[in-house]
């Protein structure tokens, strides 16, 4: 949908050179062109992934973007239809693992973040400054370091390998309350007058939280649910370390990276990777687009003051 250049621009320009309006029009056209080019740059890689996922002729990277013969072979191979036993891919299992993880994580993480952010934003209690600074300092340590010990503890509770899903859920959600900035920023914008009024009528802090603040915090709740849901889809480092080579316990990121890590793997599974990428991206994108209004509001409203 590239905008074609207006053909008789030069003649119009002389006629309206002086007036501010044409100056305005010219800059607008330039801005439109820039926007078109920039959006093409941003969208092309995804278009290429989709195109390559339909490539029928070879599974290794070839020099053509548009496939010579379209076929759903790659999508079928992902679900082991028409594929010998020895080339099977456990994509469905990885996909379900990640789905379970993201749903459970979304719920628990939202609960954690809301508790922390509401308390820090609304209530003035001793040690509030100390707690915020303490969490800031904790955030400065590289996360991977604690993974080494957490893997041993998780293996003690038999939550690595096949049932790495539960181990990872605990690890993702346990200290997720440290990411409270955005929602705290949002709670700061809710005026306090309503709370005082309710408090005066004898409502306990809990009722204030559940009946007044929470309903008004719908955007931030959805924002946190969404970001928490997106987390497990993108995590690679922790998942690879905890899964300990058990293909049944992998999430999508580790599984696909494992598939195309070796050069033989890349040659045999490159287009399968593209197809898997499309299958993973579509549902997450659709969910994201529906809740985009809240996401934008959360980011613009909250993140700024965090």
């Amino acid at each position: 949908m590239s905008k074609e250049k207006p053909k008789n621009l030069s003649i119009k320009k002389e006629a309206k050179q002086r007036s501010l309006k044409t100056h305005q029009k010219v800059t607008n056209v330039i801005v439109y062109i820039i926007l078109v080019i920039v959006s093409i740059i941003w969208i092309t890689p995804f278009v290429m992934i989709v195109l390559e996922s339909f490539k029928g002729e070879a599974t290794c990277p070839t020099d053509a973007i548009i496939p010579r013969q379209f076929s759903l072979k790659n999508y079928k191979a992902l679900f082991n239809i028409g594929v010998e036993k020895k080339d099977e891919i456990k994509f469905f299992r990885w996909y379900m693992n990640t789905l379970i993880m993201s749903c459970v994580c979304a719920i628990i993480q939202t609960f954690m973040v809301l508790c922390m952010s509401y308390t820090l934003s609304r209530m003035r209690f001793k040690g509030r400054k100390f707690l915020m600074n303490f969490m800031l300092v904790l955030g400065m340590f590289p996360g991977f370091l604690s993974m080494i010990i957490l893997k041993k503890v998780m293996s003690g509770w038999n939550m690595i390998g096949e049932n790495a899903v539960w181990g990872l859920i605990i690890i993702y959600t346990a200290s997720s309350a440290m990411g409270y900035y955005v929602s705290k920023g949002f709670f700061d914008t809710i005026p306090k007058s309503l709370d005082e009024a309710a408090r005066v009528d004898g409502a306990t802090r809990a009722t204030v939280f559940f009946r007044i603040t929470l309903p008004m915090a719908k955007p931030i709740v959805i924002y946190t649910l969404l970001t928490a849901f997106m987390g497990p889809w993108g995590d690679f480092m922790f998942a690879k370390y905890i899964v300990n080579n058990a293909t049944d316990g992998m999430n999508v990121a580790v599984g696909l990276q494992n598939l195309i890590a070796t050069s033989e793997g890349l040659a045999a599974h490159y287009t399968h990777f593209c197809a898997a990428g499309v299958l993973v991206a579509i549902p997450v994108t659709i969910l994201f687009m529906c809740l985009q209004r809240y996401y934008v509001e959360g980011v613009t409203g909250g993140a700024v003051k965090g």
């Binding site: 041993k152 293996s155 690595i160 300990n244 080579n245 293909t247």
Partner: peptide
């Protein structure tokens, strides 16, 4: 039974012999 590259299986073994 899992298919694992040789380098990966050696370093995962050493990373934690118990697991």
């Amino acid at each position: 039974v899992e298919g694992v590259t040789e380098a990966e299986s050696a370093s995962q073994m050493i990373a934690s012999v118990e697991d």
